[in-house]
């Protein structure tokens, strides 16, 4: 399951370089002699058949060698590793923010289905899924950074545990974490509604178990499975959102590295970042699969 997916993903990433045109021309620009092109092509192994090239590239990648950046004289692996930290500084708090608000809100609206609160939350959810992330970021920047002047407009102030670092992370984390809240509230709600109509909930209530315990222990524990599944499916979007958020707030993460590399047509870097994010997503989904075993003891992997 994992291996064929990774082979497919690497094949897509590998072909990105070839879709972008002749890498040699990218390297030297248009004014280069035919001789030099052929020489460099042989040197880089680009004269070999495509599957040999893929195999050579893949065997380098497996050893952790993602090649050299065209524009910055540095190894792609190094460039990416420098940027992973800042990206996680945004994505992890954003994910926590989303979950911390969405799950309680979803449980509450499931307790009062089809009332005004419920309908209003449906409306709000549709509002938020219609919002462009990058525009939200700019609006937040405008209000809190430029009008009220209480938070920095852009850039990373330092590590999260320093005050400047924390302050600079607030707006990007909100940009990344606020929009999915509404969606997850609705998902939690529908998962809860389904569970709360089960027989064992009625049994628990008739035994005289307190309502909070019924909801949290009997209800939510069983609603957790679909919620975690959708959270796993959501992870790719989180990285997509990070690309935009980092660009808006000039945050030195992988997303901004990717956007800059695309603009400069620095395809070894583009390949490296896309591959890294894809592998991260695949691994995250694997973690979600394993989390099932803890959530639901009936699930066993052989």
């Amino acid at each position: 399951m994992l291996v064929p997916t990774l082979v497919g993903v690497t094949a897509i990433v590998f072909s990105l370089m070839h879709v972008s045109g002749d890498p040699i021309r990218l390297l030297f620009g248009p004014n280069v002699s035919e001789e030099k092109v052929l020489e460099k092509r042989a040197e880089l192994g680009l004269d070999k058949p495509i599957y040999v090239q893929y195999w050579n590239w893949l065997s380098q990648v497996v050893q952790g060698n993602l090649g050299l950046s065209i524009h910055v004289q540095d190894r792609v692996g190094r460039l990416i590793l420098d940027r992973v930290g800042p990206t996680l500084e945004l994505t992890i708090p954003a994910l926590i923010l989303t979950v911390a608000i969405a799950i309680p809100a979803g449980i509450i609206s499931a307790m009062r289905p089809y009332t005004i609160i419920d309908n209003v939350s449906r409306l709000i959810a549709l509002f938020w899924v219609s919002m462009p992330y990058f525009w939200l970021g700019i609006m937040l920047m405008m209000v809190f950074g430029l009008r009220l002047r209480i938070l920095p407009i852009s850039g990373r102030g330092g590590p999260l545990w320093t005050l400047a670092g924390l302050k600079s992370a607030i707006l990007p984390v909100l940009t990344l974490g606020l929009p999915p809240i509404a969606l997850f509230t609705r998902l939690t709600r529908s998962a809860m509604l389904e569970v709360m109509s089960e027989d064992y909930i009625r049994t628990a209530r008739s035994k005289g178990v307190r309502e909070t315990i019924v909801v949290v222990h009997h209800g939510f524990r069983n609603a957790l499975l679909p919620v975690v599944t959708l959270l796993g499916l959501r992870l790719p979007w989180l990285f997509g959102g990070a690309v935009i958020t980092e660009t808006v707030f000039a945050w030195p993460g992988m997303g901004r590295l990717l956007v800059n590399a695309v603009m400069e047509r620095d395809y070894p870097v583009v390949q490296g970042v896309v591959l890294f994010i894809a592998v991260l997503t695949v691994v995250a989904n694997l973690v979600v699969d394993f989390a099932y075993v803890f959530i639901d003891p009936r699930i066993r992997y052989s």
């Binding site: 897509i12 990433v13 790719p236 997509g240 690309v243 990717l258 583009v270 896309v274 894809a278």
Partner: peptide, 23 residues
């Protein structure tokens, strides 16, 4: 379906950005 899984495991916006830039 394996093809769907493979494309699905790369964040859509990230891949679209890389592809659009490449083209």
């Amino acid at each position: 379906m394996r093809m769907v899984d493979i494309v699905w495991s790369i964040p859509g916006l990230v891949l679209a950005l890389a592809l659009a830039g490449a083209l």
